[in-house]
Amino acid sequence: MHRRQFIALGAAFMATPTLLRAEDAFRMRDFYEKDQSFTPLAKELQDERISVNGYMAPPLKADSTFFVLTKRPMAVCPFCETEAEWPDDIMAVYTQRVFRVVPFNRRITVTGVLSLGGYKDPETGFVSRVRLEKSTFELV
């Protein structure tokens, strides 16, 4: 990210602060029931700024503010071996700023505002059910 240079300038107060520790963060299974409906917890946390742990799927677009947060690293997910459907328990993450890509097997904690319900991205046309908006993330 292009923010780095501030450190060089000694303006360390720019660093992204951590809202929650990794161990306080939610996991994606906290939001889905077995039948893919939302849990009461998910509904309760709607529109709140929360932290979620997961992995960044390889982004479809470069220089964007959007990525997919997966429960497990892409390469070890079981559905990758078959033609099985992409699981629905993924989260769409919209970051505040253009982000620097993290390898798919690095665990990250994303902090953003939880938003539920179907939404079609006007730019990419992709539909998501659960989103974290105005997000920032960091490596765990």
């Binding site: 799927a57 390889p58 982004p59 479809l60 677009k61 470069a62 964007s64 997919v68 892409m74 559905f79 990758c80 033609e83 099985a84 459907e85 992409w86 699981p87 629905d88 993924i90 769409a92 890509v101 990419t124 992709f126 539909v127 998501s128």
Partner: peptide, 25 residues
Amino acid sequence: DSLGSTYGLQATFNNDETMAFFPGT
């Protein structure tokens, strides 16, 4: 046809015979 399918198709066609990749990545 969807975000999930994009990843699914990539996984499907990234095999011994073909390679499938996202230029964005």
